[in-house]
Amino acid sequence: MAKLSTAGGPPASHAIEHLADVVNADQALVHRGRFIDLQWLWQIGDVPYFIGIQRGMILELVRGPVLMRSHEFAIRGAQENWERFWTPMPRPGFHDLFAMTKSGRASIDGNLQPLMANLRYFKEVLAAPRKLAEDGHHG
C-alpha cells in the first residue's frame, strides 16, 4: 500500500514520480489523448512540473523551475489541495478541478484551447494519482 499524506491522498512526490506510469498504462486514456502533442505545466505548491505529452502518453516530466521553458497552459494549486484532491473519495470542494478553481484552491492560465478541447483527458490525468491511493499501485 502506498504511503498516504496527512490529507489522505498519495504524497505529491509519490504522485508525480508514478504519474507517467499510471497514465501510460491506461489504454483508454492514452487513446483518448491520441491527438495531443504539447507541453503543459502542473504547479504543485512551489514546484512547477513540465509535462510533455505525445500522442496521449506522458513521455517527459521535468521538475522545475527551468529557465525560459515554455508551456501551453498551466494548472496550479497548493500541495495540500492536490493531496486532498487525490484521495479516493475526496470531500466536497476537493473532488474536481473546477470545484477547486471556483473556490480559489487551484488556478488555470495560458492558452486554454488545447485544455478545453481535451478536457476529459486532462481531468483524468490530474485525477490519475487517486489510483495510487486506491490499490497501492507502484507503491
Binding site: 473532488h95 474536481d96 478541478l97 473546477f98 470545484a99 484551447q113 478545453m116 478541447a117 478536457l119 476529459r120 481531468k123
Partner: peptide, 16 residues
C-alpha cells in the same frame, strides 16, 4: 468550432 461541444459540456459538468 475548435472545441467539441458535447465533449466539453460533459467534461465541464462531470465533477458536479
Amino acid at each position: 468550432p475548435d472545441v467539441h461541444g458535447g465533449e466539453v459540456c460533459a467534461a465541464m459538468i462531470s465533477g458536479l
